[in-house]
């Protein structure tokens, strides 16, 4: 299984979050932009590369679309959910540790 012990890129994290519901490429771009409050705009090449790699790792899968449809839809897999949860836990740890140190410095305690 493709479990990880390194940080995901911001793009991959947001793509996985977006694919809790099936979406096609442009839908992912729009959803990521919305989730990040307009801060993150995925570049097409970056998104394409990330989708290919995540498919290879089994984190996401392409759905069988209509035969006449050129737009492929993707959705997160169980492995992908596990990777996403692991990353969420890592990010929480980062924030909690940051808060502990920085708030201590601010309050001088």
């Amino acid at each position: 299984m493709g479990t990880i012990n390194t940080a995901l890129t911001e793009a991959v994290y947001y793509i996985l979050l977006s694919l809790m519901e099936p979406l096609h490429g442009y839908g992912i771009m729009q959803n990521v932009e919305e989730l990040s409050g307009g801060r993150l705009h995925l570049a097409a090449g970056t998104l394409y590369g990330a989708i290919s790699t995540m498919q290879e790792k089994g984190w996401i899968t392409a759905l069988d679309g209509a035969a006449d449809s050129r737009k492929k839809e993707y959705v997160i897999t169980d492995i992908g959910r596990e990777v996403l949860r692991a990353e969420y836990a890592r990010l929480k740890e980062l924030v909690e540790n940051g808060r502990a140190v920085l708030e201590k410095e601010e309050t001088g305690v």
């Binding site: 793009a11 096609h24 490429g25 442009y26 771009m29 932009e33 705009h41 995925l42 570049a43 097409a44 090449g45 970056t46 998104l47 050129r70 737009k71």
Partner: peptide, 29 residues
């Protein structure tokens, strides 16, 4: 599919254009 228009190719190089009104356009972000 992301709203860009394929213009053409020169060997392995490809050219795209996208309306600026449709948002930022980057291939490598």
């Amino acid at each position: 599919e992301t709203g860009a228009e394929y213009i053409g190719k020169v060997m392995k190089w490809v050219y795209f254009r996208k309306k600026t009104a449709d948002g930022p356009f980057e291939l490598h972000g």
